[in-house]
């Protein structure tokens, strides 16, 4: 009996000014992309506290997407730079916890880049699918 293919659970923190609109566009343009991503609209990628990302992973997400405006385009001017600075630290940290860096991705997607959004989601889904489930709680408890 073939085992059920693993469908990664992904959480996307999308900036309302750009990536979230890009996602909308992808939807209205009927672009094909997997439905694995649950989108959460945020005011700015800079508002995505690392706590949210870590909590998403701890609570069962297999991967996380953070998407904001292109450099220079942030509505709050500095927000996305802040995110960009935190990102490598966050992935280093996750790596130390044993969470593969590839599970968390940072992308710049403008409101008009519907296709790019779809592509990013396709990519992330496949990357995480290849990595397998994170299932943090179960993993952690297996080591208790």
């Amino acid at each position: 009996m073939p085992t059920e293919p693993f469908e990664p659970k992904l959480i996307g923190f999308l900036c309302r000014w750009c990536a979230y609109t890009g996602a909308d566009l992808a939807g209205t343009s009927r672009l094909q992309y997997p439905s694995n991503l649950t989108a959460i609209r945020v005011m700015c990628s800079g508002r995505v506290d690392p706590t949210f990302i870590i909590k998403a992973l701890a609570d069962g997400a297999d991967g996380v997407l953070i998407a904001g405006c292109h450099p220079g385009d942030c509505h709050y001017s500095e927000g996305n730079y802040r995110t960009q600075r935190r990102y490598p630290l966050l992935t280093d940290l996750l790596d130390q916890f044993g969470v593969e860096r590839e599970r968390v991705r940072l992308e710049w997607i403008s409101a008009s880049e519907g296709e790019r959004f779809a592509q990013v989601v396709r990519d992330l889904t496949e990357t995480v699918r290849a990595l397998g489930p994170l299932q943090w709680k179960q993993r952690r408890e297996a080591l208790a």
Binding site: G46, D49, P50, T51, I53, I54, K55, P71, E78, Y81, R82, T83, Q84, R85, R86, Y87, P88, L89, L90, L93
Partner: peptide, 25 residues
Amino acid sequence: TLDQGAKFLSSLGSVSRGKTVEEAR
């Protein structure tokens, strides 16, 4: 605060200077 490490990490976003990926790295 849910997580002390994450909270500190969050505060670092405004502390470092660079605007490029390399600087962030």
